[in-house]
Structure formats: structure tokens, C-alpha cells
């Protein structure tokens, strides 16, 4: 079985850097790259009646948009790299979902981009990168 590397991708520049970094590692090791895109979602948020009614439709739209605007362009880019690429688009809490993907796939490494923000909310609630660095059961590379 080939080794697997999970890389988080949200379309940002930092995330792009992370993908490039992960690609180099994957090439060197002959590993499979799992590109994970997480749509932030909490099953415990409060919705209005109309939001509930339209949720199924919106979810479909969100997934289509994610595929069109974020995932597909990246896949096109990676086509020529010669590395085997898998794509996962999931809903959930970003850090928790990435951890679940790592565990499920049995990946040995996780590569993420640093958001580079130091806003108050990050100070209060922590960043995704910070949380993953603390909680991941595998080696985490944070790419600036």
C-alpha cells in the first residue's frame, strides 16, 4: 500500500503553497495525495424555517460551487504532476473533519496552510492550524 498524505485546501494562497509542498513530498515518496476541502458546518447551529426548507437545495449548490470554483481548478493543475490525487469535500468543523479524514485514510502526514491571521477570534478560539498541531495523531506540516 502506498503512503498517503492529506493536504487541506480552501482555495487560498497559503493553501496553495501547502498543496505544492505536499506535492513535492508525495513525488519524493511516491505517495498518494488526498486533497481535503472542508465546508464549515455545525449541526447545532440555529436555522430559520425557510433556511431549513431550502437547506437541501443550498447544500447541493454549495457542493457544486466548491467543486467548480475550488476543487476542479486545482485538480486540473495537478493532472500533469504524475502524482495520484484523491479529492474529498466534506461538511463539518474544519479541524475535526480533517482529523477524521486523516484517521479514516490512514495517512501518515497532514499538510496545512497557515492563515497568517492574528485576529481576536483566533486568540480566543484558536486557529485551525494550532488545533491540528496540538491534536493530530500524525506529523503535521504547517506551510506559511
Amino acid at each position: 500500500m502506498t503512503e498517503k498524505i492529506v493536504v487541506a485546501y480552501d482555495g487560498s494562497e497559503n493553501a496553495h503553497n501547502a498543496v505544492n509542498f505536499a506535492l513535492d513530498v508525495a513525488k519524493a515518496k511516491g505517495a498518494t495525495l488526498i486533497v481535503a476541502h472542508v465546508l464549515e458546518w455545525s449541526p447545532y447551529s440555529f436555522l430559520t424555517k425557510t433556511e431549513i426548507e431550502e437547506r437541501h437545495m443550498r447544500r447541493k449548490e454549495e457542493l457544486e460551487r466548491a467543486d467548480k470554483a475550488i476543487v476542479s481548478p486545482l485538480l486540473k493543475e495537478l493532472q500533469t504532476s504524475g502524482v495520484e490525487v484523491e479529492v474529498l469535500v466534506k461538511y463539518g468543523h474544519t479541524a475535526e473533519t480533517l482529523l477524521a479524514i486523516v484517521k479514516e485514510s490512514g495517512a501518515k502526514q497532514l499538510v496545512i496552510g497557515r492563515t497568517g491571521q492574528s485576529s481576536i477570534s483566533t486568540r480566543l478560539f484558536g486557529s485551525v492550524a494550532g488545533t491540528l498541531a496540538q491534536a493530530a495523531p500524525v506529523a503535521v506540516t504547517i506551510v506559511p
Partner: peptide, 15 residues
């Protein structure tokens, strides 16, 4: 978990 993103039971109850 694959149905995440759809309305959860919690959300339906809360609403």
C-alpha cells in the same frame, strides 16, 4: 457523517 450539511435533528427540533 456523509449527510453533514443537511438539516440535523437538532436543528429541526430547535426551530
Amino acid at each position: 457523517p456523509d449527510d453533514a450539511g443537511e438539516v440535523s435533528h437538532f436543528q429541526a427540533l430547535a426551530t
